[in-house]
Write a protein that binds this DNA or RNA. Structure first.
Lengths: 198, 198
DNA sequence: GTCTATAACTCGATAGAC
DNA sequence: GTCTATCGAGTTATAGAC
C-alpha cells in the first residue's frame, strides 16, 4: 500500500504511482503487479481504468505534458513582475525541471525517449508532442530575449532551445544514476549564465 | 538473421546486436528471444556465452565504455597537430558522440541511466563508471583550456563537463524520439561556440 | 468498481544429447 | 558450442461473480 497518494480516487492513484515508477525504471521496467501492490488493488482493477498498458502509459505521459505546459503558462503569475522578462522566463523554465527533480525523480520524457522504439504508438506520440511544445515555448522566449538584448547566443533559437531541453533531461538522468541531484542545478546555473548578455 | 555482424564469432555478434537493441529499447526492452532471432542461434546458446542477462548487460556496457575511452585516448593521434589544443580536444570529444550517433543510434549510457533503478547491480556499476571516466576526461580538458585562455566559462570545470555530457546524451535521446539526427550536431555547435573564448 | 480465477503467452534459465 | 525440450515464474489481458 502506498500512503503517499491516499485520499484520491483509484484512477488518480494509479496514474501517480505509474508516473513515479516510469521515472525510476522506464515504461518496460514496471508491471501491473508492481502497480497493483503499491496502490492496494488487483491487476484486474487496473484494466478497468486502463484497458491496456499502452492506454495507461499514454495517459501518464499526457497528464504530465499538460501539467508541464500549464506550469509554463503560469510563469507570468508566479514571477514577481506582472510581465516577466525573457531572462526571468528562461530561469523559470529551467527551474521547473529542477523542482520536478527534487519532487519525484527525473522528467518523464527522458526515460520514455530512451526506450522509444519499444513503446506503443500512442505513447510515442505523446513523447514527441512534449518535445514539440516545450521546445517551441522556450524557443519563443529565447528569440524574444535576444531581440531585446537580454540574451546572447548564435544561430536559430529553436536549435538552442532543443539543446537546453536536452541538457536538463540528460542532467536528470545523470542525477538519478549517480545519486547526485545537484547536477541539474549545476547545469541550469551554467546555461543561464552562458546565455546572459550581461 | 542479421548480416551486419556476420563473419565474427557468436559472442561478438551477440554483443553487437545486444548493444544496438539496448540503444533503441533499453535493457528491459529486448529479450533473449529478440537477440537469438537476429543472431541466428537459440536462446540456450546465449546462456552459454552469458550465464545471465545481467552478465550480458554488464559486458555490453563495459565494452562500450572501454571503446569510448580508447577513442578519447586516440584523439591526439587523430588530430592534425601532434599535440591538439584543448579547444580541439573539446571538439573531438563532442564529435565522438555525433559519429556514434550516425553509426548506431544513441549512446548506451543514456538509455541505461533512464532505467537505472531496475538494472542489475553490475550493470549499474558500469554505467556510473562511464560517467565518472568521461566527465573526468572532459573536465581536465576544460580546465586546461581555461587556464590557456582558449576556453571561457564560470565555475568548476567538472560542473561544466557534466552539463556538456548531459547535453549530448539528452540530444541523442531527443534525436531518436523525433527522428532528427541533426539535433546532436546542433547541440555540439552551440556548446562549442559558447565555450570558445574568441 | 473491485474482486477471484484463469487464459494465453513470454520471460530468463537449466538439463542433457550431440 | 549449439541444439531440443522443458521448467517455473513472470507478463498482459479477460470472464464472470459480487
Amino acid at each position: 500500500m502506498d500512503t503517499a497518494t491516499d485520499g484520491s480516487d483509484t484512477r488518480t492513484m494509479l496514474l501517480d504511482v505509474a508516473e513515479r515508477l516510469t521515472r525510476l525504471r522506464g515504461y518496460n521496467g514496471y508491471s501491473f503487479r508492481d502497480l497493483a501492490e503499491r496502490v492496494g488493488v488487483t491487476t484486474a482493477s487496473i484494466h478497468y481504468h486502463f484497458p491496456t498498458k499502452g492506454d495507461l502509459g499514454r495517459d501518464v505521459m499526457k497528464r504530465y505534458r499538460e501539467r508541464f505546459m500549464q506550469a509554463l503558462a503560469a510563469i507570468p503569475a508566479s514571477s514577481k513582475a506582472a510581465t516577466p522578462t525573457p531572462r526571468e522566463q528562461l530561469r523559470a523554465f529551467l527551474e521547473l525541471f529542477d523542482s520536478a527533480m527534487r519532487q519525484g525523480g527525473a522528467c518523464l520524457c527522458a526515460p520514455l525517449a530512451a526506450e522509444y522504439e519499444s513503446l506503443p504508438a500512442p505513447v510515442q506520440d505523446e513523447v514527441r508532442r512534449f518535445y514539440t511544445e516545450a521546445e517551441g515555448w522556450l524557443a519563443a522566449v529565447l528569440d524574444k530575449g535576444r531581440r531585446a538584448g537580454q540574451l546572447r547566443f548564435d544561430g536559430p533559437a529553436l536549435a538552442v532551445a532543443r539543446s537546453l531541453v536536452a541538457m536538463v533531461e540528460g542532467a536528470m538522468l545523470a542525477a538519478g544514476a549517480n545519486a547526485d541531484e545537484a547536477r541539474v542545478r549545476q547545469a541550469i546555473t551554467w546555461a543561464a549564465s552562458t546565455l546572459d548578455a550581461r
